[in-house]
Nucleic acid binder design. Structure first.
Lengths: 254, 254
DNA sequence: GCGATTCTAATCGTATACGCTCATTGCGCG
DNA sequence: CGCGCAATGAGCGTATACGATTAGAATCGC
Protein backbone atom coordinates (compact mmCIF):
# COMPACT_ATOMS: atom_id res chain seq x y z
CA UNK A 1 0.00 0.00 0.00
CA UNK A 2 2.93 2.27 0.54
CA UNK A 3 4.70 0.98 -2.52
CA UNK A 4 4.16 4.22 -4.34
CA UNK A 5 5.92 6.11 -1.60
CA UNK A 6 8.69 3.52 -1.49
CA UNK A 7 9.22 3.45 -5.21
CA UNK A 8 12.62 4.76 -6.14
CA UNK A 9 12.01 8.35 -7.01
CA UNK A 10 14.43 7.72 -9.81
CA UNK A 11 12.93 10.43 -11.98
CA UNK A 12 14.84 13.60 -11.39
CA UNK A 13 11.76 15.68 -10.80
CA UNK A 14 8.91 14.92 -8.47
CA UNK A 15 6.45 15.82 -11.19
CA UNK A 16 7.83 13.20 -13.57
CA UNK A 17 7.74 10.60 -10.83
CA UNK A 18 4.15 11.45 -10.00
CA UNK A 19 3.19 11.30 -13.65
CA UNK A 20 4.74 7.85 -13.94
CA UNK A 21 2.90 6.64 -10.84
CA UNK A 22 -0.43 7.97 -12.03
CA UNK A 23 0.13 6.57 -15.49
CA UNK A 24 0.75 3.17 -14.00
CA UNK A 25 -2.29 3.41 -11.77
CA UNK A 26 -4.51 4.37 -14.69
CA UNK A 27 -3.20 1.60 -16.89
CA UNK A 28 -3.65 -0.94 -14.11
CA UNK A 29 -7.25 0.13 -13.82
CA UNK A 30 -6.87 1.24 -10.21
CA UNK A 31 -8.37 4.55 -11.23
CA UNK A 32 -11.49 4.04 -13.26
CA UNK A 33 -12.66 6.24 -16.10
CA UNK A 34 -14.12 9.57 -15.17
CA UNK A 35 -12.56 9.34 -11.73
CA UNK A 36 -11.94 12.75 -10.23
CA UNK A 37 -8.36 13.56 -9.25
CA UNK A 38 -8.46 16.39 -6.72
CA UNK A 39 -5.11 18.08 -6.40
CA UNK A 40 -5.21 18.09 -2.62
CA UNK A 41 -5.83 14.35 -2.54
CA UNK A 42 -2.91 13.74 -4.85
CA UNK A 43 -0.66 15.93 -2.76
CA UNK A 44 -1.70 14.27 0.47
CA UNK A 45 -1.54 10.78 -1.03
CA UNK A 46 2.01 11.13 -2.25
CA UNK A 47 3.22 13.39 0.51
CA UNK A 48 4.12 16.31 -1.71
CA UNK A 49 2.71 19.71 -2.51
CA UNK A 50 0.22 20.58 -5.19
CA UNK A 51 2.58 22.10 -7.73
CA UNK A 52 4.32 18.92 -8.88
CA UNK A 53 0.92 17.29 -8.90
CA UNK A 54 -0.39 19.94 -11.23
CA UNK A 55 2.55 19.53 -13.58
CA UNK A 56 2.12 15.78 -13.64
CA UNK A 57 -1.52 16.27 -14.59
CA UNK A 58 -0.58 18.66 -17.39
CA UNK A 59 1.86 16.08 -18.70
CA UNK A 60 -0.72 13.31 -18.56
CA UNK A 61 -3.24 15.53 -20.27
CA UNK A 62 -0.82 15.89 -23.15
CA UNK A 63 -0.68 12.10 -23.32
CA UNK A 64 -4.44 11.98 -23.37
CA UNK A 65 -4.77 10.05 -20.13
CA UNK A 66 -6.51 12.74 -18.10
CA UNK A 67 -8.93 15.51 -18.92
CA UNK A 68 -8.09 18.82 -17.33
CA UNK A 69 -10.85 21.41 -17.18
CA UNK A 70 -9.90 24.83 -15.81
CA UNK A 71 -11.37 25.52 -12.39
CA UNK A 72 -13.11 22.19 -12.47
CA UNK A 73 -10.34 19.78 -11.79
CA UNK A 74 -8.87 16.74 -13.45
CA UNK A 75 -10.53 13.46 -14.28
CA UNK A 76 -9.25 10.22 -15.72
CA UNK A 77 -9.97 10.46 -19.43
CA UNK A 78 -12.87 8.26 -20.39
CA UNK A 79 -12.45 6.31 -23.59
CA UNK A 80 -15.54 5.98 -25.72
CA UNK A 81 -15.82 3.31 -28.38
CA UNK A 82 -15.27 5.75 -31.27
CA UNK A 83 -12.24 7.16 -29.51
CA UNK A 84 -10.71 3.72 -29.20
CA UNK A 85 -11.37 3.16 -32.87
CA UNK A 86 -9.73 6.49 -33.61
CA UNK A 87 -6.65 5.66 -31.57
CA UNK A 88 -6.30 2.30 -33.25
CA UNK A 89 -6.60 3.93 -36.65
CA UNK A 90 -3.78 6.26 -35.66
CA UNK A 91 -1.78 3.34 -34.32
CA UNK A 92 -2.11 1.50 -37.60
CA UNK A 93 -1.01 4.56 -39.54
CA UNK A 94 1.99 5.29 -37.34
CA UNK A 95 3.10 1.77 -36.48
CA UNK A 96 3.10 0.60 -40.07
CA UNK A 97 5.18 3.67 -40.86
CA UNK A 98 7.61 2.81 -38.09
CA UNK A 99 7.76 -0.84 -39.11
CA UNK A 100 8.36 0.08 -42.74
CA UNK A 101 11.47 2.00 -41.71
CA UNK A 102 12.52 -0.49 -39.07
CA UNK A 103 12.50 -3.67 -41.15
CA UNK A 104 15.60 -2.63 -43.04
CA UNK A 105 17.55 -1.90 -39.89
CA UNK A 106 16.50 -4.88 -37.81
CA UNK A 107 19.62 -6.80 -36.85
CA UNK A 108 19.69 -10.52 -36.21
CA UNK A 109 20.28 -9.72 -32.56
CA UNK A 110 17.04 -7.74 -32.54
CA UNK A 111 15.20 -10.65 -34.12
CA UNK A 112 16.54 -13.07 -31.54
CA UNK A 113 15.49 -10.79 -28.75
CA UNK A 114 12.01 -10.39 -30.19
CA UNK A 115 11.69 -14.15 -30.54
CA UNK A 116 12.71 -14.43 -26.91
CA UNK A 117 10.03 -11.97 -25.89
CA UNK A 118 7.37 -14.00 -27.65
CA UNK A 119 8.55 -17.09 -25.80
CA UNK A 120 8.34 -15.31 -22.47
CA UNK A 121 4.88 -14.04 -23.30
CA UNK A 122 3.77 -17.58 -24.03
CA UNK A 123 3.83 -18.45 -20.34
CA UNK A 124 2.61 -15.17 -18.97
CA UNK A 125 -0.88 -15.52 -17.56
CA UNK A 126 -1.35 -12.17 -15.86
CA UNK A 127 -3.11 -9.81 -18.30
CA UNK A 128 -1.35 -6.71 -17.02
CA UNK A 129 2.10 -8.25 -17.21
CA UNK A 130 1.35 -9.69 -20.63
CA UNK A 131 0.18 -6.32 -21.84
CA UNK A 132 3.43 -4.79 -20.62
CA UNK A 133 5.41 -7.40 -22.50
CA UNK A 134 3.24 -6.79 -25.53
CA UNK A 135 4.07 -3.10 -25.35
CA UNK A 136 7.74 -3.92 -25.10
CA UNK A 137 7.52 -6.27 -28.07
CA UNK A 138 6.01 -3.62 -30.28
CA UNK A 139 8.41 -0.98 -29.01
CA UNK A 140 11.45 -3.13 -29.74
CA UNK A 141 10.05 -4.05 -33.12
CA UNK A 142 9.82 -0.42 -34.16
CA UNK A 143 12.87 0.92 -32.35
CA UNK A 144 15.32 0.39 -35.25
CA UNK A 145 13.42 2.92 -37.37
CA UNK A 146 15.43 5.63 -35.60
CA UNK A 147 12.57 8.09 -35.36
CA UNK A 148 12.36 9.23 -31.76
CA UNK A 149 9.29 11.41 -32.10
CA UNK A 150 7.40 8.72 -33.93
CA UNK A 151 8.32 6.17 -31.27
CA UNK A 152 7.16 8.55 -28.56
CA UNK A 153 3.84 9.09 -30.29
CA UNK A 154 3.31 5.35 -30.71
CA UNK A 155 4.17 4.74 -27.09
CA UNK A 156 1.70 7.36 -26.00
CA UNK A 157 -1.10 5.90 -28.07
CA UNK A 158 -0.31 2.45 -26.79
CA UNK A 159 -0.50 3.61 -23.19
CA UNK A 160 -3.80 5.34 -23.89
CA UNK A 161 -5.55 2.12 -24.88
CA UNK A 162 -3.59 -0.23 -22.66
CA UNK A 163 -6.33 -0.13 -20.02
CA UNK A 164 -8.79 -1.47 -22.55
CA UNK A 165 -6.39 -4.17 -23.63
CA UNK A 166 -5.95 -5.28 -20.04
CA UNK A 167 -9.69 -5.26 -19.45
CA UNK A 168 -10.16 -7.24 -22.62
CA UNK A 169 -7.51 -9.83 -21.85
CA UNK A 170 -8.89 -10.27 -18.36
CA UNK A 171 -12.03 -11.97 -19.58
CA UNK A 172 -11.37 -13.27 -23.05
CA UNK A 173 -7.91 -14.65 -23.67
CA UNK A 174 -6.78 -13.07 -26.85
CA UNK A 175 -3.24 -14.29 -26.08
CA UNK A 176 -3.24 -17.22 -28.46
CA UNK A 177 -4.23 -15.25 -31.51
CA UNK A 178 -1.94 -12.35 -30.73
CA UNK A 179 0.99 -14.69 -30.24
CA UNK A 180 0.38 -16.23 -33.62
CA UNK A 181 0.11 -12.85 -35.30
CA UNK A 182 3.28 -11.65 -33.63
CA UNK A 183 5.09 -14.66 -35.02
CA UNK A 184 3.76 -13.96 -38.50
CA UNK A 185 4.92 -10.36 -38.34
CA UNK A 186 8.32 -11.42 -37.10
CA UNK A 187 8.67 -13.98 -39.85
CA UNK A 188 7.89 -11.38 -42.48
CA UNK A 189 10.47 -9.08 -40.92
CA UNK A 190 13.05 -11.81 -40.99
CA UNK A 191 12.44 -12.17 -44.72
CA UNK A 192 12.59 -8.38 -45.05
CA UNK A 193 9.18 -8.48 -46.67
CA UNK A 194 8.02 -4.99 -45.79
CA UNK A 195 4.68 -5.19 -47.54
CA UNK A 196 3.73 -8.44 -45.85
CA UNK A 197 4.93 -7.33 -42.44
CA UNK A 198 2.99 -4.07 -42.51
CA UNK A 199 -0.12 -5.82 -43.82
CA UNK A 200 -0.02 -8.37 -41.05
CA UNK A 201 0.61 -5.67 -38.48
CA UNK A 202 -2.41 -3.75 -39.76
CA UNK A 203 -4.58 -6.85 -39.50
CA UNK A 204 -3.24 -7.57 -36.04
CA UNK A 205 -4.11 -4.11 -34.78
CA UNK A 206 -7.42 -3.91 -36.61
CA UNK A 207 -8.52 -7.17 -35.11
CA UNK A 208 -7.59 -6.03 -31.64
CA UNK A 209 -9.52 -2.82 -32.24
CA UNK A 210 -12.59 -4.73 -33.39
CA UNK A 211 -12.49 -7.07 -30.41
CA UNK A 212 -12.15 -4.24 -27.94
CA UNK A 213 -14.94 -2.33 -29.65
CA UNK A 214 -17.21 -5.35 -29.30
CA UNK A 215 -16.33 -5.53 -25.63
CA UNK A 216 -16.54 -1.84 -25.00
CA UNK A 217 -20.11 -1.08 -25.94
CA UNK A 218 -21.79 -3.31 -23.35
CA UNK A 219 -18.97 -2.57 -20.91
CA UNK A 220 -19.62 1.13 -21.17
CA UNK A 221 -23.23 0.64 -20.30
CA UNK A 222 -22.33 -1.51 -17.35
CA UNK A 223 -19.78 1.00 -16.14
CA UNK A 224 -22.30 3.79 -16.44
CA UNK A 225 -24.64 1.82 -14.24
CA UNK A 226 -21.90 1.28 -11.68
CA UNK A 227 -20.99 4.93 -11.83
CA UNK A 228 -24.60 5.82 -11.17
CA UNK A 229 -24.70 3.63 -8.11
CA UNK A 230 -21.35 4.77 -6.81
CA UNK A 231 -22.15 8.42 -7.12
CA UNK A 232 -24.97 7.96 -4.69
CA UNK A 233 -22.45 6.82 -2.08
CA UNK A 234 -19.72 9.16 -3.18
CA UNK A 235 -20.42 11.89 -0.67
CA UNK A 236 -20.18 9.52 2.25
CA UNK A 237 -16.68 8.37 1.40
CA UNK A 238 -13.64 10.32 2.37
CA UNK A 239 -11.03 9.28 -0.18
CA UNK A 240 -12.72 8.75 -3.52
CA UNK A 241 -10.07 6.81 -5.35
CA UNK A 242 -8.09 5.05 -2.68
CA UNK A 243 -8.82 1.53 -1.67
CA UNK A 244 -9.62 1.07 2.01
CA UNK A 245 -7.78 3.93 3.55
CA UNK A 246 -9.41 2.70 6.73
CA UNK A 247 -12.46 4.81 6.25
CA UNK A 248 -12.89 5.76 9.87
CA UNK A 249 -13.70 9.30 9.03
CA UNK A 250 -17.09 10.89 8.64
CA UNK A 251 -18.83 7.74 9.68
CA UNK A 252 -21.07 9.09 12.37
CA UNK A 253 -23.92 11.50 11.90
CA UNK A 254 -26.49 8.90 12.72
CA UNK B 1 6.26 45.66 -28.23
CA UNK B 2 3.75 45.39 -25.46
CA UNK B 3 1.31 43.61 -27.68
CA UNK B 4 1.81 40.37 -25.78
CA UNK B 5 0.80 42.04 -22.57
CA UNK B 6 -2.13 43.69 -24.23
CA UNK B 7 -3.38 40.55 -25.87
CA UNK B 8 -6.74 39.51 -24.56
CA UNK B 9 -5.98 36.94 -21.92
CA UNK B 10 -8.87 35.05 -23.39
CA UNK B 11 -7.53 31.70 -22.28
CA UNK B 12 -9.01 30.83 -18.95
CA UNK B 13 -5.69 30.04 -17.33
CA UNK B 14 -2.58 32.16 -17.38
CA UNK B 15 -0.52 29.11 -18.26
CA UNK B 16 -2.55 28.44 -21.40
CA UNK B 17 -2.26 32.06 -22.42
CA UNK B 18 1.49 32.02 -21.90
CA UNK B 19 1.79 28.82 -23.87
CA UNK B 20 -0.13 30.37 -26.75
CA UNK B 21 2.08 33.47 -26.69
CA UNK B 22 5.27 31.45 -26.66
CA UNK B 23 4.00 29.16 -29.36
CA UNK B 24 3.28 32.14 -31.55
CA UNK B 25 6.67 33.66 -30.82
CA UNK B 26 8.44 30.42 -31.72
CA UNK B 27 6.48 29.97 -34.92
CA UNK B 28 7.13 33.56 -35.93
CA UNK B 29 10.81 32.95 -35.46
CA UNK B 30 11.17 35.61 -32.77
CA UNK B 31 12.80 32.98 -30.61
CA UNK B 32 15.48 31.12 -32.51
CA UNK B 33 16.37 27.47 -32.11
CA UNK B 34 18.29 26.56 -29.02
CA UNK B 35 17.33 29.82 -27.37
CA UNK B 36 17.34 29.55 -23.58
CA UNK B 37 14.10 30.37 -21.81
CA UNK B 38 14.90 31.16 -18.16
CA UNK B 39 11.83 30.97 -15.98
CA UNK B 40 12.55 34.24 -14.23
CA UNK B 41 12.82 36.06 -17.53
CA UNK B 42 9.51 34.65 -18.67
CA UNK B 43 7.86 35.65 -15.42
CA UNK B 44 9.28 39.17 -15.53
CA UNK B 45 8.51 39.55 -19.23
CA UNK B 46 4.85 38.68 -18.91
CA UNK B 47 4.35 40.13 -15.46
CA UNK B 48 3.39 36.87 -13.80
CA UNK B 49 4.98 34.40 -11.46
CA UNK B 50 7.06 31.39 -12.37
CA UNK B 51 4.47 28.70 -11.84
CA UNK B 52 2.25 29.42 -14.85
CA UNK B 53 5.44 29.83 -16.85
CA UNK B 54 6.58 26.39 -15.84
CA UNK B 55 3.26 24.85 -16.79
CA UNK B 56 3.30 26.56 -20.14
CA UNK B 57 6.75 25.12 -20.78
CA UNK B 58 5.59 21.64 -19.82
CA UNK B 59 2.72 21.98 -22.25
CA UNK B 60 4.98 23.17 -25.04
CA UNK B 61 7.39 20.36 -24.33
CA UNK B 62 4.54 17.93 -24.90
CA UNK B 63 3.98 19.59 -28.26
CA UNK B 64 7.66 19.22 -29.05
CA UNK B 65 8.34 22.94 -29.29
CA UNK B 66 10.67 23.25 -26.32
CA UNK B 67 13.19 20.97 -24.69
CA UNK B 68 12.99 20.86 -20.93
CA UNK B 69 15.98 19.47 -19.06
CA UNK B 70 15.64 19.12 -15.29
CA UNK B 71 17.77 21.60 -13.38
CA UNK B 72 19.12 22.97 -16.62
CA UNK B 73 16.26 25.00 -17.92
CA UNK B 74 14.21 25.15 -21.08
CA UNK B 75 15.36 25.82 -24.61
CA UNK B 76 13.52 26.26 -27.88
CA UNK B 77 13.60 22.83 -29.50
CA UNK B 78 16.03 22.73 -32.39
CA UNK B 79 14.84 20.92 -35.49
CA UNK B 80 17.45 18.89 -37.29
CA UNK B 81 17.00 17.83 -40.89
CA UNK B 82 16.22 14.19 -40.00
CA UNK B 83 13.69 15.37 -37.43
CA UNK B 84 11.90 17.44 -40.03
CA UNK B 85 11.85 14.44 -42.32
CA UNK B 86 10.46 12.37 -39.49
CA UNK B 87 7.71 14.86 -38.74
CA UNK B 88 6.73 15.02 -42.39
CA UNK B 89 6.61 11.25 -42.56
CA UNK B 90 4.25 11.29 -39.60
CA UNK B 91 2.22 14.05 -41.21
CA UNK B 92 1.80 12.04 -44.37
CA UNK B 93 0.70 9.00 -42.40
CA UNK B 94 -1.79 10.88 -40.24
CA UNK B 95 -3.08 13.42 -42.74
CA UNK B 96 -3.82 10.84 -45.40
CA UNK B 97 -5.68 8.91 -42.73
CA UNK B 98 -7.68 11.98 -41.80
CA UNK B 99 -8.37 12.85 -45.41
CA UNK B 100 -9.49 9.32 -46.16
CA UNK B 101 -12.17 9.61 -43.49
CA UNK B 102 -12.99 13.22 -44.29
CA UNK B 103 -13.66 12.92 -48.01
CA UNK B 104 -16.91 11.07 -47.43
CA UNK B 105 -18.21 13.68 -45.01
CA UNK B 106 -17.14 16.81 -46.85
CA UNK B 107 -20.22 18.90 -47.54
CA UNK B 108 -20.56 21.23 -50.49
CA UNK B 109 -20.44 24.12 -48.04
CA UNK B 110 -17.04 22.84 -46.86
CA UNK B 111 -15.82 22.67 -50.43
CA UNK B 112 -16.94 26.21 -51.14
CA UNK B 113 -15.19 27.44 -48.03
CA UNK B 114 -11.98 25.64 -48.96
CA UNK B 115 -12.12 27.09 -52.44
CA UNK B 116 -12.50 30.51 -50.87
CA UNK B 117 -9.46 29.95 -48.71
CA UNK B 118 -7.37 29.10 -51.74
CA UNK B 119 -8.51 32.31 -53.39
CA UNK B 120 -7.54 34.35 -50.36
CA UNK B 121 -4.16 32.66 -50.21
CA UNK B 122 -3.57 33.59 -53.81
CA UNK B 123 -3.07 37.25 -52.90
CA UNK B 124 -1.30 36.76 -49.60
CA UNK B 125 2.35 37.77 -49.86
CA UNK B 126 3.43 37.62 -46.22
CA UNK B 127 4.96 34.18 -45.58
CA UNK B 128 3.77 34.00 -41.98
CA UNK B 129 0.19 34.94 -42.83
CA UNK B 130 0.20 32.55 -45.78
CA UNK B 131 1.47 29.77 -43.58
CA UNK B 132 -1.36 30.43 -41.14
CA UNK B 133 -3.87 30.24 -43.95
CA UNK B 134 -2.21 27.09 -45.16
CA UNK B 135 -2.61 25.57 -41.73
CA UNK B 136 -6.25 26.56 -41.71
CA UNK B 137 -6.79 25.07 -45.15
CA UNK B 138 -5.42 21.72 -44.11
CA UNK B 139 -7.30 21.81 -40.81
CA UNK B 140 -10.61 22.51 -42.52
CA UNK B 141 -9.91 19.86 -45.09
CA UNK B 142 -9.50 17.18 -42.43
CA UNK B 143 -12.05 18.44 -39.91
CA UNK B 144 -14.99 16.42 -41.27
CA UNK B 145 -13.25 13.17 -40.37
CA UNK B 146 -14.62 13.62 -36.87
CA UNK B 147 -11.55 12.36 -35.08
CA UNK B 148 -10.59 14.93 -32.47
CA UNK B 149 -7.40 13.29 -31.25
CA UNK B 150 -6.16 12.78 -34.76
CA UNK B 151 -6.85 16.41 -35.61
CA UNK B 152 -5.02 17.52 -32.49
CA UNK B 153 -2.00 15.41 -33.37
CA UNK B 154 -1.93 16.77 -36.91
CA UNK B 155 -2.22 20.32 -35.64
CA UNK B 156 0.66 19.76 -33.26
CA UNK B 157 2.90 18.36 -35.99
CA UNK B 158 1.99 21.22 -38.27
CA UNK B 159 2.92 23.79 -35.63
CA UNK B 160 6.20 22.01 -35.01
CA UNK B 161 7.43 22.50 -38.56
CA UNK B 162 5.66 25.77 -39.26
CA UNK B 163 8.81 27.74 -38.43
CA UNK B 164 10.64 25.91 -41.19
CA UNK B 165 7.82 26.50 -43.62
CA UNK B 166 7.91 30.21 -42.88
CA UNK B 167 11.67 30.33 -43.24
CA UNK B 168 11.37 28.45 -46.49
CA UNK B 169 8.66 30.63 -47.97
CA UNK B 170 10.56 33.74 -47.00
CA UNK B 171 13.24 33.16 -49.57
CA UNK B 172 11.87 30.79 -52.16
CA UNK B 173 8.26 31.31 -53.09
CA UNK B 174 6.74 27.90 -52.97
CA UNK B 175 3.28 29.51 -53.08
CA UNK B 176 2.56 28.83 -56.73
CA UNK B 177 3.21 25.13 -56.57
CA UNK B 178 1.41 24.66 -53.29
CA UNK B 179 -1.63 26.51 -54.59
CA UNK B 180 -1.76 24.22 -57.60
CA UNK B 181 -1.45 21.13 -55.47
CA UNK B 182 -4.15 22.34 -53.12
CA UNK B 183 -6.47 22.75 -56.07
CA UNK B 184 -5.69 19.24 -57.28
CA UNK B 185 -6.44 17.79 -53.87
CA UNK B 186 -9.67 19.71 -53.65
CA UNK B 187 -10.75 18.56 -57.08
CA UNK B 188 -10.16 14.95 -56.13
CA UNK B 189 -12.19 15.50 -52.97
CA UNK B 190 -15.01 16.98 -54.96
CA UNK B 191 -15.07 13.84 -57.07
CA UNK B 192 -14.90 11.75 -53.89
CA UNK B 193 -11.84 10.06 -55.29
CA UNK B 194 -10.20 9.04 -52.03
CA UNK B 195 -7.25 7.27 -53.59
CA UNK B 196 -6.35 10.19 -55.80
CA UNK B 197 -6.83 12.76 -53.06
CA UNK B 198 -4.61 10.94 -50.60
CA UNK B 199 -1.98 10.31 -53.23
CA UNK B 200 -1.84 13.96 -54.19
CA UNK B 201 -1.75 14.97 -50.56
CA UNK B 202 1.18 12.64 -50.00
CA UNK B 203 3.04 14.11 -52.92
CA UNK B 204 2.24 17.62 -51.75
CA UNK B 205 3.67 16.98 -48.31
CA UNK B 206 6.60 14.94 -49.52
CA UNK B 207 7.62 17.69 -51.89
CA UNK B 208 7.43 20.28 -49.13
CA UNK B 209 9.54 18.03 -46.94
CA UNK B 210 12.17 17.62 -49.65
CA UNK B 211 12.33 21.34 -50.31
CA UNK B 212 12.70 22.18 -46.65
CA UNK B 213 15.34 19.49 -46.24
CA UNK B 214 17.32 21.01 -49.09
CA UNK B 215 17.07 24.39 -47.44
CA UNK B 216 17.75 23.16 -43.96
CA UNK B 217 21.15 21.58 -44.32
CA UNK B 218 23.05 24.72 -45.33
CA UNK B 219 20.79 26.78 -43.10
CA UNK B 220 21.71 24.70 -40.10
CA UNK B 221 25.36 25.33 -40.71
CA UNK B 222 24.78 29.03 -41.08
CA UNK B 223 22.73 29.15 -37.91
CA UNK B 224 25.41 27.25 -36.05
CA UNK B 225 27.89 29.87 -37.10
CA UNK B 226 25.61 32.65 -35.94
CA UNK B 227 25.06 30.84 -32.66
CA UNK B 228 28.78 30.56 -32.19
CA UNK B 229 29.24 34.26 -32.67
CA UNK B 230 26.30 35.22 -30.50
CA UNK B 231 27.39 33.05 -27.62
CA UNK B 232 30.56 35.04 -27.38
CA UNK B 233 28.51 38.13 -26.65
CA UNK B 234 25.90 36.31 -24.64
CA UNK B 235 27.37 36.95 -21.22
CA UNK B 236 27.45 40.69 -21.75
CA UNK B 237 23.76 40.89 -22.44
CA UNK B 238 21.25 40.96 -19.65
CA UNK B 239 18.12 39.59 -21.29
CA UNK B 240 19.05 36.86 -23.73
CA UNK B 241 15.95 36.86 -25.87
CA UNK B 242 14.49 40.29 -25.30
CA UNK B 243 15.43 43.11 -27.50
CA UNK B 244 17.00 46.06 -25.69
CA UNK B 245 15.79 45.75 -22.15
CA UNK B 246 18.52 48.24 -21.28
CA UNK B 247 21.16 45.77 -20.18
CA UNK B 248 22.66 47.71 -17.31
CA UNK B 249 23.46 44.74 -15.13
CA UNK B 250 26.75 42.95 -14.48
CA UNK B 251 28.75 45.26 -16.61
CA UNK B 252 31.69 45.92 -14.33
CA UNK B 253 34.57 43.71 -13.42
CA UNK B 254 36.31 44.96 -16.44
C1' DG C 1 52.14 25.45 -15.79
C1' DC C 2 48.25 22.40 -15.68
C1' DG C 3 44.74 19.65 -13.58
C1' DA C 4 41.54 18.54 -9.91
C1' DT C 5 38.83 20.47 -6.30
C1' DT C 6 36.18 23.51 -3.68
C1' DC C 7 33.54 27.53 -3.50
C1' DT C 8 30.13 30.63 -5.22
C1' DA C 9 26.45 32.32 -7.80
C1' DA C 10 22.58 31.61 -10.53
C1' DT C 11 18.65 29.05 -11.47
C1' DC C 12 15.62 25.44 -10.98
C1' DG C 13 12.25 22.79 -8.04
C1' DT C 14 9.06 22.65 -4.13
C1' DA C 15 6.44 24.14 0.00
C1' DT C 16 3.33 27.37 2.16
C1' DA C 17 -0.27 30.88 1.83
C1' DC C 18 -3.86 33.53 -0.26
C1' DG C 19 -7.41 35.19 -3.75
C1' DC C 20 -10.74 33.61 -6.94
C1' DT C 21 -13.86 30.71 -9.62
C1' DC C 22 -17.38 27.41 -9.78
C1' DA C 23 -20.72 24.00 -7.91
C1' DT C 24 -24.14 23.25 -4.51
C1' DT C 25 -27.59 24.30 -1.04
C1' DG C 26 -31.18 27.09 0.75
C1' DC C 27 -34.52 30.59 0.10
C1' DG C 28 -37.93 33.43 -2.17
C1' DC C 29 -40.98 34.11 -5.97
C1' DG C 30 -44.12 32.92 -9.74
C1' DC D 1 -45.11 22.86 -6.27
C1' DG D 2 -41.46 24.04 -9.60
C1' DC D 3 -38.07 27.40 -11.10
C1' DG D 4 -34.67 31.02 -10.63
C1' DC D 5 -31.41 33.40 -7.65
C1' DA D 6 -28.23 34.43 -3.86
C1' DA D 7 -25.08 32.78 -0.15
C1' DT D 8 -21.86 29.35 1.22
C1' DG D 9 -18.15 26.15 0.74
C1' DA D 10 -14.86 23.38 -1.53
C1' DG D 11 -11.34 23.30 -4.71
C1' DC D 12 -8.52 25.43 -8.26
C1' DG D 13 -5.00 28.98 -9.77
C1' DT D 14 -1.28 32.08 -8.62
C1' DA D 15 2.10 34.71 -5.85
C1' DT D 16 5.78 34.76 -2.51
C1' DA D 17 9.57 32.41 -0.16
C1' DC D 18 12.91 28.89 0.61
C1' DG D 19 15.80 24.73 -0.17
C1' DA D 20 18.35 21.97 -3.64
C1' DT D 21 21.08 21.29 -7.60
C1' DT D 22 24.13 22.45 -11.22
C1' DA D 23 27.46 25.12 -13.96
C1' DG D 24 31.32 28.12 -13.76
C1' DA D 25 35.44 30.21 -11.63
C1' DA D 26 39.06 30.85 -8.57
C1' DT D 27 42.27 28.40 -5.75
C1' DC D 28 45.26 24.87 -4.23
C1' DG D 29 48.25 20.99 -5.03
C1' DC D 30 51.21 18.40 -8.09
Amino acid sequence: MLDEALTQRSASSTAAWLAAELRRAIVRGELHDGQALPQDELAARFGVSKIPGREALVQLQAEGLVTLIPHRGATVAALSAPEVAEIYAMRIALETLALRHAVTNLTSADLVRLEGLITIMEDERDPLAWSELNREFHARLYAPCRMPRLLDAIQSLHVSVQRCVVAYLTQSNHHREAQHQHRLILRACRRRDVALATRQLSEHLQQAADNIAKLLTPLALKKAAIREREEAHARARANPYLRANSGHRARGRR
